[in-house]
Simulated scan of single mutants.
Amino acid sequence: MKANEFVKKHGWDETSKIVEETPLNWCFACVDLRDLEVKRSYPSHSEFISIVDLENLIASRDLVGIHGLEKSKEIVANAPSDDHFYSWTLGNSGVRDKTVNIGKLRKAIADVESCQ
Rank of each mutant, 00 (worst) to 15 (best):
M1N: 03
M1T: 08
K2S: 09
K2R: 15
N4A: 02
N4T: 07
F6E: 09
V7A: 00
K8Q: 14
K8Y: 05
K8F: 05
K9G: 02
W12T: 03
W12P: 05
K17S: 13
I18Q: 06
I18Y: 06
I18A: 01
V19W: 13
E20S: 11
E21N: 15
T22F: 06
P23F: 00
L24I: 01
L24M: 07
L24W: 05
W26D: 08
W26H: 08
C27M: 08
C27G: 14
F28P: 04
A29K: 10
A29R: 12
C30E: 11
V31M: 05
R34E: 14
E37K: 15
V38C: 07
V38N: 09
K39P: 12
K39N: 10
R40M: 06
R40Q: 14
R40H: 10
R40Y: 13
S41K: 13
S41W: 14
S41D: 14
P43K: 01
P43D: 00
S44F: 04
S44P: 09
S44C: 11
S44L: 09
S44N: 15
H45G: 09
S46L: 10
E47F: 04
F48H: 14
I49G: 03
I49N: 09
S50M: 11
S50P: 12
I51M: 05
I51S: 03
I51G: 04
L54G: 04
L54C: 04
L54N: 10
L54Q: 12
N56L: 09
I58V: 06
I58G: 02
R61K: 12
L63H: 05
V64Y: 02
V64K: 01
G65D: 03
G65R: 00
I66H: 07
H67S: 11
L69E: 07
L69R: 04
L69S: 05
E70S: 12
E70L: 06
E70M: 07
K73V: 12
K73S: 09
K73Y: 04
I75A: 01
A77S: 15
N78C: 07
N78K: 13
N78F: 10
A79C: 09
A79Y: 01
A79H: 05
D83I: 03
H84I: 08
F85R: 02
Y86G: 03
Y86L: 00
Y86W: 10
Y86H: 14
S87Y: 01
G91L: 07
G91S: 04
N92A: 02
N92D: 11
V95E: 10
V95Y: 13
D97P: 08
D97K: 12
T99S: 15
V100K: 01
G103K: 01
K104A: 08
K104W: 01
K107C: 02
K107M: 05
I109T: 06
I109Q: 02
D111L: 00
D111K: 00
E113Y: 01
S114M: 02
Q116G: 09
